[in-house]
């Protein structure tokens, strides 16, 4: 069933500072598509064998991800993913759960910082 998936580049329990240096990703389903699928979809956490931007792009395209959430990303990878019709929300900072919640609301934007304000 078609479910919209988001991939978050993570480090610990927050968004990793750099896309090309990410060793771990979280793939999470977003809202079900219009036909109501996606109820059985589960979160997956993948640890990559190598830290590599190319390899991560490969994982993203093969995993059928619709949205990528990351912090710093080099423009080559950004344009490649956009060319593959994958939405990229970059320069996001904050804990994964908060980011996912904001993303599920459809309110996450590039440059959002979800750390508590001083």
């Amino acid at each position: 069933m078609p479910v919209k998936y988001a991939l978050l580049t993570i480090c610990g329990n927050e968004i990793a500072p750099r896309f090309d240096m990410t060793a771990e990703v979280l793939i999470a389903p977003l809202e079900p598509m219009a036909d109501g699928g996606g109820e059985d979809a589960e979160r997956r956490q993948l640890v990559l064998a190598h830290v590599s931007g190319e390899e991560l792009c490969d994982v993203i395209t093969r995993a059928g991800v619709n949205v990528v959430v990351c912090c710093g990303i080099e423009e080559d990878y950004y344009h490649y993913l956009r060319w593959k019709r994958i939405e990229v929300i970059s320069d996001v900072m904050g804990p994964c759960e908060d980011v996912l919640a904001r993303l599920a609301q459809g309110a996450l934007q590039a440059g959002d910082c979800l750390y508590a304000s001083p």
């Binding site: 610990g12 910082c113 750390y115 304000s117």
Partner: peptide, 8 residues
């Protein structure tokens, strides 16, 4: 970053 003080 080591989890002892995440946050702004």
């Amino acid at each position: 970053f080591n989890g002892t003080g995440v946050g702004r």
